[in-house]
């Protein structure tokens, strides 16, 4: 026992590069556009037309039986000089302050939105071999992502939230409607160009 514990989370296991190799063997080399490894976490950027097939492969052949998360990230303004906080009309709490960005990172991906799904092996392995893997596809405004609901039913709420908060169209989702915001809400609040101040106050109309 050392004095300090290793911080890297063991919940991921070792990066599952072999799964990436087997995906490329089964679907061709161009199925995986890029592999990103950061802090022991492996992310596979997939070609979008292979997305559902690869996830089905992961589920049936690789033993990733739990879909633990679907995350949509808006990278608008990610590589700008100053983190993109737009001035609004009312209270201008979106303007960048001195706590803003000083490091300009590499572009995270080729398009505006990154839609990633994190999988975990739970029942298919013994206690010490739980692995995690993340796959990701990139889309722009107006493009749609194939839905994972038919493959992993637990993607249902996650994808509805992705549609609600980010405006991603998940093609083939059986029930794609807003989940958290009211049904008649305008805009998608989690996007980077959605202001956090200065929007009209809701429910203040004269009755």
């Amino acid at each position: 026992m050392s004095d300090v514990l290793q911080i890297n989370s063991p919940t991921w296991g070792a990066p599952d590069q072999d799964a990436g190799d087997r995906i490329q063997a089964a679907f061709g080399a161009e199925a995986i556009v890029r592999r990103v490894e950061f802090r022991g976490e492996l992310t596979l950027d997939l070609a979008i037309e292979r997305y559902v097939e690869v996830c089905t492969f992961l589920r049936d052949q690789e033993g990733y039986d739990l879909l633990s998360d679907v995350t949509v990230v808006d990278y608008l303004g990610y590589t700008g000089e100053v983190a993109g906080y737009w001035g609004g009309d009312g209270r201008d709490i979106n303007r960048d302050s001195h706590t803003g960005k000083r490091v300009v990172p590499e572009p995270a991906g080729p398009k505006r939105f990154g839609v990633s799904a994190t999988f975990c092996k739970v029942m298919t392995v013994t206690d010490d071999a739980h692995r995690r893997l993340r796959v990701r596809v990139w889309v722009d405004e107006g493009e749609s992502v194939p839905s994972l609901v038919a493959v992993y039913p637990s993607a249902d709420f996650h994808e509805r939230e992705g549609f609600d908060m980010m405006g991603i169209d998940f093609a083939g989702h059986p029930n794609l409607r807003r989940i958290i915001m009211p049904a008649d809400w305008g805009g998608h609040p989690q996007r980077k160009d959605y202001p956090i101040g200065g929007e009209p106050v809701q429910f203040s109309d004269e009755v």
């Binding site: 633990s68 990278y75 983190a83 803003g100 995270a108």
Partner: peptide, 21 residues
């Protein structure tokens, strides 16, 4: 159950995006 934070950083002092799972 599993309580996870999907943290995306852009290298600044503020998180670019935090997904609360």
């Amino acid at each position: 159950g599993e309580f996870g934070f999907h943290l995306i950083s852009d290298g600044s002092a503020r998180p670019w995006r935090v997904r609360l799972h």
